[in-house]
Structures are given as C-alpha cells and as structure tokens.
Nucleic acid binder design. Structure first.
Lengths: 209, 209
DNA sequence: ACTCACCCTGTCCTTCGGTCCAATACCCCG
DNA sequence: CGGGGTATTGGACCGAAGGACAGGGTGAGT
C-alpha cells in the first residue's frame, strides 16, 4: 500500500494533520527520503532544511508531494512547484482543506492558495515571453475605436487628452470608454489600467461599499 | 442548481463529453456568456473565436472553467490559466479523465497535462530572478501612512474604500495622497498606478492641455 | 428598403478626485 | 520649552469622470 508521510524538521507539533489523516506518520527528512516511493503521499514543511531538494527527490521518484508553509508566498509556491510539488498551502489549513488538497493532487491536479494562483500564473506567463498575449485577447473583444481609447487611457491619459489624440470629442471618448468598461467588466479607468498592465487585481469587482 | 456547459464553435461533434457528463448541455460562446454564472462548470474548446476573452469573462464571474484543445501546447495552457481557466487538457481525453479533471478543478485545484506542467513551471522558476523590487525604492521616500495609502490606491481602490480600509476619513486619504503625488512627482492616481505597476515610466508626464 | 453595428455628438446630472486654506494633536530633538 | 515633522480632520471649490437619455451619420448584409 501507499505510505502517507508528514515531513517536519524537529519536534514541531503536527498541527491538524493528525486530524485530517489519522493513518499518516510523521518523520524527519532523512526518513522520508529513505521510505517514500511511487504514489506515496508526502507533506513537507517549508521550514525543513533543503526542502526543495527533498521535494525534488521525492517527486522524481513518483511520490505525490505537497508543501506546507507557515508563511506562504508566491515565490515559495513557485519554487515548490518547480521542484515537483503538486500542492502548496498554509501549514495551518483546516483538516477539510488538507483532505481536499489531497483529493486534488492525488488526481493529477495542482493545488495552490487561490490568491497565489493569479500571481504564480501571471509571473509564469511573463517569464515565458508570452508577455502581452492576454491583452490582445481581452482587447480583441473591442472595436477598433474602443481599443484605441482603451489603450490611450491605459497609458494614463485623461479623457480630454485622448480626445485630442484621436481628434474626437471628449464626449465620444466617454462613450467608447463606457463600452470598454462594459465589455471588459471593469468599473473605472483604474481597473482598466490594472487589467491592461496586469496581474494583481486581487479580488475586485463588486462592492465598493 | 449549477449549469454544466460545453462551449464549441460550430457544429463540431461533441467527442466524449456527452458520455462523461450526460447532464451537460453544449452551446455557442454567446450563449455561455449569457448563461454561465457563479459556480457553473464550463468547458471551452480552444478553437472557438476569442476563447481567451470568453474564459476571462466566465471565470471572472465565478464560473469554473476548463479549456480543451485538439492541439495542446504549453503556451496555450499558460494562456488558458492566465485567463482564469482552472483546467487545460486534450479535447479527446477519455470520459474518465474528464471526470477526474472536473473533480480536481471543482475542488479549487488546477489541472494541466502533466508533461506541460514540468515545462511551464520549470522554465518559469529560472527566469524569475528578481521580480518587483522597484517599488521599495520609490516607496522609501514615503511615510508609513502615505505608503499604505499609495499601495491601496495602486490596487485600484477608491479614496472612500481606502478610508474604510485604514479606518480614517476620506479627507485624510486625500491629504496623504496629495503628499504622495508631490513626493513621487505624479499628477494623479493613474500615474501612480503606472509608476507602481511597471518600471519604465520614461514618458513625459507634463502637459495635459 | 431595412436592420444592425459602429462611430460621433449633445445635454443633464451625480459622484469622485485634487487642491487651497486652515486647525488640532502627538512625538522627537535641540 | 519651542520648533519641525507626521497624522488627522474640516470646509470650500472646481474640474474630471461616468451614467442616463437622445439623437445623427455611415456601410454591410438580408
């Protein structure tokens, strides 16, 4: 059968893992390295020494690895994924979350904190030179004129300036801009800028008050 | 209840989707755009026009989107993810695979072809030297409060929202913001965003009329 | 002809953003 | 202690932004 291991550095207590997976065993890095094999599930704390190397080894041997961190950040998440981990989450995730994660990654899925997702994918996309392919897509939904207005606005120009630039009335600029907002589902020029200059945007939309 | 849609371009036959999800309906992009909402599951073929935009819209509205392609490649996969899709697979995946994918992505997971995963994440990590350290320089000139305001504004928030966030008056936000504008030599919040979300800025700034 | 999509413009009105001119309070430093 | 920097807020003012409502013009299809 497959093993199920928690790898911790020292005598740190194992938060709610025990609760999530009663059958699992906790161990030290060396032990994991020795025991884990194909299809085993291994959870590695990001505070163990050389966790990257460990994760790499394990996943290379066919183990299904998830990394848990007390201080999750996108950079570490990327590193974890790059080392072959299939999951990355907060170490204090609830037992339910942990089981959900296990479900996902044991089915060939990837699991990262939702808020990190955007960042990870974003930087990945940029890193691959795919650069502004997205924009072309989002902008593709616009008419030629709307696109021109959107781009100018996204460059930080005021409506008046855009008007002069395109040699139309400020009123017309507003009209086009309104259409852009509708089509791209943003509330104002700020979010337009963010959308076109990319990523963050956390969880805007809806509710301003 | 939640919808379950297959979005195809034209009269292409729906491979084995029917078999995997008997209850699902297939439709055109426009229909999907109109019907799909929060928590709906939508499968989009990568040969429909502007699938990127469509996926963007849908996922932004809370739908769970997966992209299927007859010719999967890492670039397209990344694009799909960047647009908010949670899954990317071959259009001719077996019904079992499709169900597995659905399981994964409906549990907050990400699903991409395993061999693409390595490529994508691998190259990323290397290419990800230093990301966004630029800001710390520019932001260093600000007081703690000003910095907080600046960052929130740069995230696309309105003055009112920032006020609530920091639990101060909108008036005070304006005061801090004014200071930020002076110190960073920008005229308004748009240029602030541009300054904080990219690096170049080369631009003129000057002259609006 | 007629519809449809796009482009352009107008007025009216509300809210938001930014600046000027204040004032109060805190804290650190000389 | 007095002076400078910071944080906070008030009021007033004005221009920018964006929505609501209403048009007029073109060209491509049907």
């Amino acid at each position: 059968m497959t093993h199920h291991l928690f790898v911790t550095q020292g005598n740190s207590d194992i938060p709610r893992w025990r609760e999530a997976f009663p059958l699992a065993r906790d161990c030290r890095p060396a032990m994991a390295r020795a025991q884990a094999g194909k299809d085993d599930h291994v959870w590695v704390m990001s505070n163990v020494d050389d966790w990257g190397v460990l994760v790499n080894n394990l996943s290379r041997r066919g183990a299904i690895v998830a990394v848990l961190s007390y201080t999750p950040d996108s950079e570490e998440a990327l590193q974890a994924l790059a080392c072959g981990a299939r999951g990355y989450a907060h170490a204090l995730s609830s037992p339910e979350s942990l089981r959900q994660i296990q479900l996902v990654i044991s089915n060939q899925g990837i699991w990262v904190l939702p808020e990190l997702m955007a960042k990870v994918v974003g930087s990945t996309f940029r890193a691959l030179g795919g650069e502004s392919r997205v924009h072309e897509d989002t902008l593709a939904a616009l008419t030629a004129r709307e696109r021109a207005v959107a781009l100018s606005v996204a460059a930080g120009n005021s409506n008046k300036r855009v008007a002069r630039e395109l040699d139309i009335t400020e009123r017309t600029v507003k009209a086009h801009l309104g259409a852009v907002f509708r089509k791209l589902q943003v509330r104002d020029r700020m979010q337009l800028i963010l959308m076109l200059s990319r990523q963050p945007v956390t969880e805007d939309l809806e509710r301003d008050d």
